[in-house]
Structure formats: C-alpha cells, structure tokens
Design a protein around this nucleic acid. Sequence first.
DNA 1: AATGAATGAGGCTTCATTCAT
DNA 2: GATGAATGAAGCCTCATTCAT
Lengths: 214, 214, 214, 214
Amino acid sequence: MSPRRRDSEVTAAARAERRAELLATAAEVFATRGYASTTVREVADAAGMLGGSLYYHFDSKESMVDEILSAFLTDMWDAYERVLAAGHGPRRTVEELVAESFRMIDRHRPAVVIYQNEARYLEATGPRFAYLTESRRRFREMWLSVLDRGVLEGVFRAGLDTALAYRFIRDTVWVAAGWYRAGGRLGAAEIARQYVAMVLEGILADRGETGRSG
Amino acid sequence: MSPRRRDSEVTAAARAERRAELLATAAEVFATRGYASTTVREVADAAGMLGGSLYYHFDSKESMVDEILSAFLTDMWDAYERVLAAGHGPRRTVEELVAESFRMIDRHRPAVVIYQNEARYLEATGPRFAYLTESRRRFREMWLSVLDRGVLEGVFRAGLDTALAYRFIRDTVWVAAGWYRAGGRLGAAEIARQYVAMVLEGILADRGETGRSG
Amino acid sequence: MSPRRRDSEVTAAARAERRAELLATAAEVFATRGYASTTVREVADAAGMLGGSLYYHFDSKESMVDEILSAFLTDMWDAYERVLAAGHGPRRTVEELVAESFRMIDRHRPAVVIYQNEARYLEATGPRFAYLTESRRRFREMWLSVLDRGVLEGVFRAGLDTALAYRFIRDTVWVAAGWYRAGGRLGAAEIARQYVAMVLEGILADRGETGRSG
Amino acid sequence: MSPRRRDSEVTAAARAERRAELLATAAEVFATRGYASTTVREVADAAGMLGGSLYYHFDSKESMVDEILSAFLTDMWDAYERVLAAGHGPRRTVEELVAESFRMIDRHRPAVVIYQNEARYLEATGPRFAYLTESRRRFREMWLSVLDRGVLEGVFRAGLDTALAYRFIRDTVWVAAGWYRAGGRLGAAEIARQYVAMVLEGILADRGETGRSG
DNA sequence: AATGAATGAGGCTTCATTCAT
DNA sequence: GATGAATGAAGCCTCATTCAT
C-alpha cells in the first residue's frame, strides 16, 4: 500500500480491526462458557461495553459465532490443502496434517473449542450453519483417503479399521484444544510430534515381544 | 424379598421405576440437544407428559442431570475399583480400564455424552456439582499412576510424557461416546480391543524400520 | 351437541373461549394505541396477567393481530357473499353492502380499526399478511363491478367516475369505525340508512333547482 | 430584503432551507412507514446521512413531526380563515372548504397522512401535541356551523343529521390523502369538484323517482 | 455539518418453576 | 399422577439519543 491512504481506507481498516478484537473476545467467552449459555451481556462485559453496543458491530449473537467459525475453517482448509497438494506419502501426510492441526489449535484455540462443543447445536439451528456439516464430511473423507492409501501401500497396519482409526485421530487431536494453553509447558510443535509418535507407534516399549490382544 | 410386600413397597418400587424411565428419557434428550439448550418442555414431550408434570417427580431440571451423572459416576467408579483391586500389571490394567470404559459408554451413553459436554458448565453453576471436579481429579490420578508405573517397569516407552499420554487416552476413549451407537457395526468389546491396540502399538505396519520423528 | 360432553370437549371449548376473550382484549388495545406502539405488556395488563403469560396462549404478538384480522375478514366476506348471491339490482346491492359493513363495524369494531390503520404496516412485514392485500383487491373489484353495472343500467349518474366513487364509499363507510361506539346515539342500522341516503342522494335540499357547481 | 445580507443571514437562510428539505424527507418516510415504526436511521438514510447527524438539525424525532404538523396546520387554517372571511353562503362555503382541503392534500400530502394516522397516538404522548386536539375541535365546530346554517337556510336537506354529515365529509375528504398522488389521472381541483358533487347530490341518476330508504 | 461509536431504556420472547384442580 | 394456566426472571435485540472527533 502507498504511504498515503485515503480516510475511507483508514476507517475501514480501523473498523475491521475493531471487529476482529471483538470477535476474539467473544470467541474466548463462548469457548469458556459455551455458546448457548453465554449471554450477550457477558460478551459485552468482556469487551468493556454495554450489551446493546455490540449490535453496532454485529447483527446478532449468531452472526458472531458464524464469523468466528468461518474464519477458522477457512484458515484450516487452506492449510490442509497446502499439505495435500505437496503430494507426500501417507505417513508424512499424517504427520503434517496433525502438525497443521495443532498449529490451528494454537492460533484459533477458542474457535476450535467452540467448533467441538457447539457444532451440533448450531447445525440444528437452521441452514445457516450447514457449512459445518459439510466441513465435517470433507474432513472425514480427507482422512479416510490418507489412511486407506497408507494401508494399501503397506505403510499402515494391514487390517487397520480405518474408520475407527480416523475417529481415533480426530478425537485425539482436536479435543486437545480443550486443555491446550498457548505458552504452556510444551509448544504446539512438540505436542504434535509426541501425538504423532503415539498415533503411529503406540506407547508400548517394545513391540516385538508384545502380542496384539489383551 | 419376601413374597408379601406391603403397598408402600410396591408403590416405592413403581415410583423408582418411573423415575428411572424418566431419567433415561431426559438423559437422551440432554445428550442430543445439550443440557442448557434443552427445555423442560422438550424432556416432558419426550416422556409423553406436560412440562409441569415433571415436577411431580423431580425438584428441578438441575436435579435431573444431577441424578443422571451421579448414577453414571457411581457405576463407573465401582467398575474401576474392581479393576484396580485385581492387581494386574500396567498393560493389563490399561487394557481392562479401557474395556471397562467402553462398557460404560455402552451402558450409559447419554450420561457419558452429557458428562463430556456439560461438566464444565455445570461445575460453574455452583457447589452442587463439585463432585464432577473431584471425579476428574481422581480419574487423572488413577491413570497417571498406572502409566507412571508402566514406564518405571519398562512396559511403556521410556521417556513417555505420561501427562500427555493420559490426555491422549482420556480423549480417545471418552469422546467415542459422541459417535458410538449401541448395536452398530462393532460391539463395545471389539471397539475396546482395537482402541487398545492403537494406543499400545500405534498404527504403523512395522516398527523396526520406522524412525520416530517426521 | 349431546348433553354429555367428554372432558376434552369441555377443555377445548374452554380454551377457545379464553383465547377469544384474550383476543378481544388485545384487539381493543391495538385499536386504541396502535399495533406497533402497543406493548405486549399493555395487552397483558388489560387481560389481567403478566407479559410472558400471553405466550402460553399465543405464539407472538404478530399471531394475535393475525388471528384478529383473519376472523374479521372471514366474517366480512361471508356476509358480502350472501349479499352478492341474492342477486339484487345495483342500488339495493349498494344499500345492503353498506348495511352489512356497518354491521361489521358493530361486531368487529376494534378489528376494523386495526385493519384501517395497520394493514399497510403489516403487509410490509412479510408474506404472512399477504391476505390483507388480497382482500383489498377483492373489495375493490366487488365495488367497481356493482358501481359500473349501476351506471350501465342507468341507476347511477351517467359519467360517474366509479373509481373515485368507490374510494368515496370505502372511506366513508370504514373510517366510521374510528368514531363509532356501540350503544351510541344511533344504532348501526340507522347510521347505515343515513349514510346510504347521503351517498345516493347527497345532502342538498332540492336537486332540481341546483346546478352542479363549477 | 436588502441587497446586502450579512453572513449570518445567508447562513440562517441556508440552514432553514436544509431543515425544510430534511423535514420533507422525514414527512415522506413517516407517512409511508408510520411515525412510530419509522426509525431515525430510516429517516437519515433517506436523507443521505447517518442517524446521529440528524441531531445536529433537530432536537428529537418528536420535534420533527411536531414541526411537520405545525406547518401544515398553520397553512391549513390560514386558508380556511380566508374562505370563512369571504362570507359566502353555505353551499359555496362547503365547496370552497372542500377545494381548499384538496389543495392542502396536494401541497402537504405526507403531513396530512401523518395527521390522519398518528394524531391520536401523538396526543397520548403528552401535552406537546395538545394543539392537535384543539385543531380537531375547531375543525368540527367550523363544519357544524356551516352545515347547521345550511339546514336553517333551507340549502341542505331538512332533518339532515349534521353531526353525521360532518363526519361523512371529514372522512371523505381527508382519507383521500392516503391514496392521492400528485400528478395522477385527476388534478386536485378536479377531484375536489367531483367530491363536492357526490356530497351535495349523491350518486343517483335521478332523484325525483327515488324514494329515500332502501 | 457530519461521522462513528457507544449508551441505556425498553420491547418481544423464552423458559424453569409453581399451583389449584 | 397429571393438567393447564400463570409467574417472573432473564435473554436477545432495537432504537432514540449523545458525544468526541
């Protein structure tokens, strides 16, 4: 951009920034208290304004979550697409998808929590949130395709129930958003590394000596 | 029981049965719609009565969830205690704890879902649900103790981050309640077996040839 | 009906009666204060209950006016149809339509006032009130047809601007709802008689001697 | 005015003009949407500015209608006074009052509509709009006096219910503001002529052969 | 003159709960 | 045991108004 902006640019940018701030605040509150049981007044309190004032910036409480979740999902799918486009083998792809997921948790933690906890409720709310259903379907397809290929290529265990493994990974990764705190003991990358290790190799000390069933 | 009951016994038993029925209904609805966003009227509808009528049986909506969760947690801890009391080694203990957990999901699925989704909200509600916090603490301690012992005894990988592994297992197992359907493709026991296999051994085909990091 | 009703019949009848009472109250208030500027609380006050209680009986404020206006229009069109079906000549038809209209004002005064004042606003509210527009169209067609026939048959003045006369009559008759009070000096029938006289013959003492004015 | 104005004069004139523009816009919107259900923002939109900006020109939404209605009523009474001062007989006076009224509708259509629809509401608002009540009283007195004189002098039908006839004329004339569109098929003068004809002579083709009742 | 952001009162509506029958 | 009607608190949202810029 040129060093000289017109007023409207400055204004539009300032407004966008304010919206983003408010959305970040709202996301935090929704994630902590739950969307349905968060009152608009609580969000406003957290933002240092009165309840009605939020409606200068947003149409409704619903449009706030909508924007929060849309932004997150857009960002997430961009990242996933980049990984898939790289054309790695199944194992590396799994590693990178997991790493990317933890990066998402790092950047959009509240949004991820909201997605985990409220998606089903929001979808039942009407067609506005149909894209959540769609995202879930696409997510499942992506993972199944990677896992199936891995089994086919002999990288993953023969006979692996990929539908089950998919859920295993999905739950494992995303639920982490519930307890992850940025700046905690472990960084997102390190957590991702360890998760991947567990998923790929399990927790047993030595596999050779270990029978499979209990 | 004796072959002759007094009326009050019959009545008490019938009443208890009716309560149980109603609680099962309520649990189903709470699990599906979310506790906070389920109305008492919805529960009553599902039970084939009018909203106010539920108050003949229960003090409040809150006391319904309370009873649902208490029953579940009591049952769960009884089972866990039996496993721990058996004195198996770490691996077998893990296997049985996981199996027991899936049995719980099988028997108390709605309660488990409610527990997963609403515990945090309910705890914030007041001291009435302090036992949920306590249960979580106890659960964590139990698992950490098993995992730590496993590492110490060389059954689990040296250097395993047990705090992380604990969360890994916890999430992995319990979130399953969200998608598990009794009578589906796989029985609870089979799912448990496969989960345990993944947790213990990972999904890789052959560990010997596989480096640990990505 | 048989002298013995089942409970459900009694209940349903009682409920319908209560609804009718409440609607009558609401209509009165809407007519007096205007629909948009009447608060639900005002309606409830007038009905001797609290604001929220109205929602046990009705879905919304909007559905209240809806029911009020629908009932009125249904009744009105039934009456008009009977008049038209009688097959009288234009003059008698006009007389009876006017008489019927004043009977409507007598029976549905608040509804008529609401219709006069709020129809345009309500129509702008969405498709729910499209039937108001439709009713207006049908009303206009009915009157134009009667007036045109009257001119054709030489009963009404040649050269009469029937579109203008239609509005003249329409306004003349219906706006009366705004000031008419049941049990006032004149009954509905007497008012109708005098209105018809004015419409048909004007207010001049003697027509023969009177030029039409420039 | 002198050929040389001071700045303050220019400014004052410009300001007055802007106010008049804005009031015309506001009147249009109030007439179309209804005063109570029109938001200040809607008025501002129509004027091409933001909601808050109107408050530079006006104290409140209320003061806008106030000014609109006052201007109209002042103009109207000036015209009526001129007619009355001319000292014509009853019939000519009626003709000219009606003609004057249609001229008012032509010039102040939105104000007339607002007056018709909102007067009652505004009067209930407090003493500020007491002049509306007063105007109505004065209007009624003026007409009754003309009509009564007409009956006394034998110009109007003996036995005419002048209270009823007054309302008949009032409604007939003013409600026309609701549908009148400047530049339509008929000019204000022509509409006035036909209205007067209907009021004075009715719509019947031939009075001699026509009995008065139905 | 006008903007942009915020205020705060008040409106419609929902819902857990109560209670007479 | 259950119903039907009502309560009253609280939630989301609207909107006239204010004010610093």
